[in-house]
Write a protein that binds this DNA or RNA. Sequence first.
DNA 1: AGGCGACATTGATTTGGGTCAAAGACCCGG
DNA 2: CCGGGTCTTTGACCCAAATCAATGTCGCCT
Lengths: 248, 248
Amino acid sequence: MPNFGSCNVFLRATFGIDPGAEIGRQLGELATQVHVIRGQEVKTDPADTTLVFLASGATKLGALASRERHQIVAFHFGGDIFTVPAVSVHRYMLIGLCESTLTTFPAREFYDRAASNPWIMRALLERSQTALFRCRDKAVNLGQKSAGERVAGFLLAMWERLDASEGSSPMIDLPMSRGDIGESLGLKIETVSRQFTKLREAGIIDTHGRSGVSLLDLPRLAEQAGYYDRNTVPPRPEWVERKPELVP
Amino acid sequence: MPNFGSCNVFLRATFGIDPGAEIGRQLGELATQVHVIRGQEVKTDPADTTLVFLASGATKLGALASRERHQIVAFHFGGDIFTVPAVSVHRYMLIGLCESTLTTFPAREFYDRAASNPWIMRALLERSQTALFRCRDKAVNLGQKSAGERVAGFLLAMWERLDASEGSSPMIDLPMSRGDIGESLGLKIETVSRQFTKLREAGIIDTHGRSGVSLLDLPRLAEQAGYYDRNTVPPRPEWVERKPELVP
DNA sequence: AGGCGACATTGATTTGGGTCAAAGACCCGG
DNA sequence: CCGGGTCTTTGACCCAAATCAATGTCGCCT
């Protein structure tokens, strides 16, 4: 059996598939096990989309806008399933934030073999939509938010995804550097640092070493993030000004 | 039979489904026909994702970042299939750019009923991935590109999606205003206008009235867009500096 | 434990795009 | 074909974040 390592875990936990069953073996044949260390790139097929299951660790998915400009489009943590696009107008790179174990599949072939199983397709579809919604929110942040709002929103998003505090005040341990945060938020490292300082001086967060962040005042942090609040922010008039018209 | 209008067209053309068959009827029951005029919002369920088939016309999908800040996350044209997210940290609104006809479905229920049909799930998955890839490219543009690069890239993207020229020099008819373009690119209307002027003065494009744009020099336009070129732009050293390490 | 290299912070200055203001062009309806 | 409102263009000025430049600090490795 060619598959090994986290592939079986992936198939069973995500899709409820017995790796020994026919479909399990067929999909397992497509699997490639990868282990990367901090800063190392996961080589993916430049000609086709790659489907990735991150068994453990954390990764960043970044795109090359040009020689010196990178944009991180997503961070992933243990258990995440996502895709790495083939090269198009931008080149995408998947890179470990720390030591990570993952299983990769050629997406098209995986879909071909999995198509007959509605569970798998449903699971993939929902994950894809989650990634799309996150990406859209990112687009809103990048297009419309100030540096302060972006950093506050980032901390809230990371808190939701990797809060490790138990009972005590919310605390997160960021696996990415200030530079990574900047590349994710479309800001320079100095700007990210200044915003951290502002939040610390305002008593909203506290920092411990390079990666530890205590979220001392979540409501105020959410306020700083400037998210849409359905109770306080009515839509701008001209977007809803025209009266509905019945279908003839 | 409760379904009518473009729903049948949608089911047959997209998924190869006979609207009269069992699955066709079940999905058709979920359909809502909508007809909007320019500027009118398509009401979608704030509590759940809405699946939309745009039969004809053009729409913009925008998010409210706050009272006065909007970000358009996608434009859609006749034949497109996409989803409108439920309200989360941002409120999304689907609005007609011109008179449009569409069919909407509650996504969760649609998926529940369609799950048994691998063709449908496969088609939905691929559309979702297309939207995700476009959104990621948008994130790269919003995060890293200059105003000039964004506008050039926008024109190229619109050319790919709605080029109507036949044989003659590439020409597009933009269904959206300068303001919409600005909200899509994270720029103000004045900045968009200035970039159009620059491109016109450089002889790269020509404009005809409010919506007509001739792309006189596509290679130079692509150059202005500053896209990653696999032949000329090598990856930044530190992203690939660490040597691969074999799995123990 | 100590030293070194990468990462982070802070300050001074510059600048791309935003903001404010006004004039001009398109296009629809009468 | 003319009038008026909306959309677009252009110009002058301003500001948030980028850039340039030190200085400071963490944490890894010996």
